[in-house]
Amino acid sequence: MKIRIISKSGVIPEYKTSGSAGFDLPAYLEESITLKPGERRLVPTGIFMELPPGYEAQVRARSGLAIKNGIGLVNGIGTVDSDYRGELLVPMINWGEKDFTIRDGDRIAQVVITKYEQATFELSESLDNTERGAGGFGHTGV
């Protein structure tokens, strides 16, 4: 699949290994950003993309930043819809105990392209029974 992009920095996203599901997003900054513990910030990437209909881009945290520095995404996973044409901005948070500085070009998140289907909804008075039924959180034990 080919995805058309605009990259303000000229950097073209790439998969780091042949088995990578996601590609990294770089920060696109005129000056560094320092996130204090608990601080949230939208970090620009300079990347704009045109996804085909039926696909989304899932923006996810990078595991190395998360485990080593406590840096994550405010919303866990962000969705970029196929009809969005704006810049990819990453909502980052510092869950750690120390200030964390983001510099231009730092890999701040990863993106996985996924196929989806839109559902149609039908109102009903009941749902089919299953073995699980309405069993929710912890219903199978700890």
Rank of each mutant, 00 (worst) to 15 (best):
L88K: 00
V43F: 04
V111T: 02
G46Q: 00
I47N: 01
I12A: 11
E117K: 10
S9H: 06
T45I: 06
S7D: 05
G135S: 11
R85S: 12
E30Y: 08
L65P: 00
T140Q: 13
I33D: 03
S18R: 12
I113D: 03
E97Q: 12
P52E: 15
G19T: 11
A61E: 05
E125M: 08
H139T: 10
G38Q: 05
R85E: 12
L65F: 05
G141M: 09
V111W: 03
D83Y: 15
G86Q: 11
K36Y: 11
L25T: 00
I3P: 01
Q110V: 10
I71P: 00
V111Q: 02
E39L: 10
A66R: 03
V11K: 12
I5T: 09
Y55W: 11
R107A: 03
G10I: 14
V142T: 14
V43K: 02
F48M: 04
R60Q: 13
L127W: 09
V142F: 12
N129D: 15
S82P: 00
A66G: 06
S82M: 07
T120G: 01
R60I: 09
T34I: 09
I33Y: 04
Y84W: 14
V142P: 00
M49W: 02
G54R: 09
A109R: 00
E87F: 03
A119R: 06
R4V: 13
F100E: 02
F137V: 11
Y15L: 13
G141A: 07
L123A: 15
R62G: 04
F100I: 07
I71E: 01
E131N: 11
W95R: 14
T140P: 00
G105M: 05
I47D: 05
D106M: 04
D106C: 08
D128H: 06
G86D: 12
K115C: 01
L51S: 10
I12S: 10
I102C: 04
G141Y: 09
G38L: 09
T130A: 10
V112T: 09
G22K: 03
R62M: 07
V43E: 01
P26I: 04
G136F: 06
I3Y: 09
I12Y: 06
L123P: 09
F137Y: 15
R41L: 07
F100N: 02
V90L: 03
A57W: 03
I113R: 09
